[in-house]
Amino acid sequence: MLGYLRRNVSLSIGILLLSLLALFIAIGSLTVDTDLARPLSVRALQPPSWDNLFGTDRQGRDLLAAMVAGTPLTLKIGFIAGFLGVGIGTVLAFIAGYYRGLTDTVIRGIADIGLTVPGLLVLIIIAVSVRGGLTVNEMALVVASLAWLNPTRTIRAQVLTLRERGYVEVARLNGMSGPEIILREMMPNLLPYLAATLVNAVSAAILASVGLEVLGLGPLESPTLGMTLYWINFNAAILNGWWWWWVAPTVIILIVFLGLFFLTVGLDEIANPRLRQAA
C-alpha cells in the first residue's frame, strides 16, 4: 500500500491535503466554540491574536470558528450533490449504454445539450426561483439538479466499451439477465472509474455552490466558505487591508480543490493504467 502510494504521487498528495483538512475540522470542532461563528459574538475586525487565531470579521464573527463550522457545510453540499449526481448519472448511463435504443438517444441527447449550456446560469435561475432563503440542504439539491449531466455522459462512454468485452458476452450467453450483468460483471470493473468520477463531481458541485454563494444566492445565515467569500467581496475586505479575513477561507478552498483534483488524477491512474506510461 505504502509502496503504491509512493508510485502514485498524485494520489498521495490528494490524500495528504484532504487529511490535513479533516484534521483541521476534527481538532477544530473539539477545541473551538462554533457559537462564535455567529455575528456579533466577538469584537469586529480584529487581526489575528491569541484570542482569535484567525482574526474576526466585520460582523463580529470569529473567523476560526466560522471556518471550523463552515468548511464541513461546504463539503456537505459537495458530497450530497456529488453523490446524487453520480448515483443518478450511473443509473442513467447503464440504462442508456447497456440497453441502447431510443432511451439511449434521448438520455445522450439531454446530457449533450445540457453540457453545452453554462451550468451556473441555469442554477442561478433555479436558485432565484426557489428563493426565500435557501438552506444548506436545499442548496445541495439545487446543485445536484445539474450534477448528473457530466457523470451520465462519461460513464455511458465507459459502459459502451465494457459491454463489448468478452466476459460480458460470456455472461450474456450463460443466460444472465441484464441487471445481473450490470451489477455483478460490469459494476466491479467500473468501480475505480466511478470513484474518480465521484471525486470530480464533488469538486464540481463545491465549485458551483461557492459560485452561487459568491453571487449572494447562498444560505445567508450559514458560515459556509462561499458565504464568507460573499461577505469579503461585499465589504471589499482586500482593498480595506483586512487581509486575515480572506486569507483563511482562500487557503481552505485552495486545499479543498487541490486535494480533490489530485485525488481524481490519482484515481484516474488506478482506473486507467495506461496513463502511467504518460506520467
Binding site: 459560485g211 459568491v214 469579503i232 480572506w246 482562500t250 478552498i253 485552495l254 480543490f257 487541490l258 480533490l260
Partner: peptide, 20 residues
C-alpha cells in the same frame, strides 16, 4: 496542474491582493 484546479475568481482575489 495546481493552477488548473483553482477557480478563476479565487485566483482573482489573490491577484488583487498581490498586484493591486
Amino acid at each position: 496542474w495546481a493552477l488548473h484546479a483553482i477557480p478563476f475568481f479565487l485566483l482573482g482575489l489573490i491577484l488583487t491582493y498581490l498586484l493591486a
